[in-house]
Design a protein around this nucleic acid. Structure first.
Lengths: 219, 219
DNA sequence: ACGGTCATTGACCGGACGGTCAAGCGGTGC
DNA sequence: GCACCGCTTGACCGTCCGGTCAATGACCGT
């Protein structure tokens, strides 16, 4: 049982160090191509130590994706101004995703990998589903306000997530040569145009102030 | 050297059988979790035979994705009416992608997997890049015709591919409960709205006749 | 009958890699 | 000084699995 182990400060730091090394390697060459021995070598410790902090190789992956997903969600929440209209909130959420990705590209990549096994795949899917539901709620409210086209909110949400995800993917792999801020602005605009009702589009307020988002992310 | 081996009719059929079994297994549980022995067992032959037809495990994967990509491209070409305006052509291409996916879900899935190694990853990326360039060309022409917003064509293409891909992904994994035709229509409309210039939208002609596309796919 | 080529078999090899373990180290409290 | 406990080590184990190979079969042309 690795679960519920009491960690000293040193222990917690070491664990974090292992998580960081693992994240970098997973992102660089994928889960399957990363050996436990690579991770510990990167951290400069012995192999056995890995199993002091993690039950097995899968566990570290699970821990990474759950915490990343959680941070992403927090970043989005923190960037959304709930006093504004739903369409603008949607735009802000998408911009936050892009900026988060820019600051945590290696972790973000993990969310889009096909999991090493059935169980992890399910975990990833669940995360995406939550994200989609959040987005659909916003869209639903946008429809009610007449700002968003009257179509199935869940379907629109899937489209939004798909394009945001792929913009990030192309940026991360060097195929989009824009600064994170430029990309965020572009993506925000693209998303608004994808779902906006007829005649709506510049009515959505200007993109979030970059500084505000950056603060919410702490990156 | 497995390359350039002369195959009898029987040989070609056996090879195809192995490709089919491999595709089914890769799609079901992923490349890494599929053993060569699983593939041959599914085909009911001995392990050694696999290496008569393929150099190694990677080779069969490569062969699958290249041929799938090629078929997808053919399906798209066949569904596009070059006499129509660029935006409608774009819509037709996207609809074709969706219908192709519906008929070849297991193969299509392979194009979105993270490759087992660096080399295959590159291959997948190249394929996507070609696809994106094709799309961007169409968009470029749409801009010239005043039907598409005047933004970087490559960026718009990325957005289009992202949402189409994800719509297919969600459909394939049972999270979208529409018939392929319904989904194709929805996606076509979504894409048009994502990139259309102001005031353009119903000007894009109605979706392709399903029968035409189906014929082009042979599925 | 015979040689040639494609096709097929399954036992076997070698190495890689996830995971274990017994032992040792260095603080901290008593 | 001792006992406890978190931390660290690296040799070791067992298994899994991709890939090889020598032998055999099946079919064909001559």
């Amino acid at each position: 049982m690795t679960s519920r182990r009491r960690l000293t400060t040193q222990g917690a730091e070491r664990k974090q160090q292992l998580l960081d090394c693992a994240a970098a390697l997973f992102a660089e060459r994928g889960f399957a191509d990363t050996r436990v021995i690579d991770i510990v070598a990167a951290a400069g410790v012995a192999k056995g130590l890995f199993y002091w902090y993690f039950e097995n190789k899968d566990a570290v992956f699970v821990e990474l994706i759950t915490s990343t997903r959680q941070n992403l969600r927090l970043a989005q929440r923190g960037s959304i101004d709930r006093g504004l209209d739903p369409l603008t909130q949607l735009r802000q959420g998408c911009e936050a995703s892009v900026r988060f990705m820019a600051g945590h590209a290696h972790l973000f990549a993990l969310l889009q990998v096909d999991g090493p096994d059935q169980r992890i795949d399910e975990l990833l899917r669940e995360g995406t589903q939550v994200h989609a539901t959040d987005t659909a709620t916003l869209i639903q409210r946008g429809i009610a306000a007449g700002l968003v086209r009257d179509e199935d909110p869940m379907l629109l949400a899937y489209g939004v997530i798909g394009s945001v995800t792929w913009f990030c993917r192309f940026h991360r792999t060097g195929r989009i040569d824009l600064s994170p801020d430029e990309l965020a602005t572009f993506v925000g605009r693209y998303i608004v145009r994808s779902v906006a009702a007829d005649g709506v589009d510049e009515s959505a307020t200007e993109p979030t102030d970059a500084a505000v988002t950056a603060a919410a992310l702490g990156c």
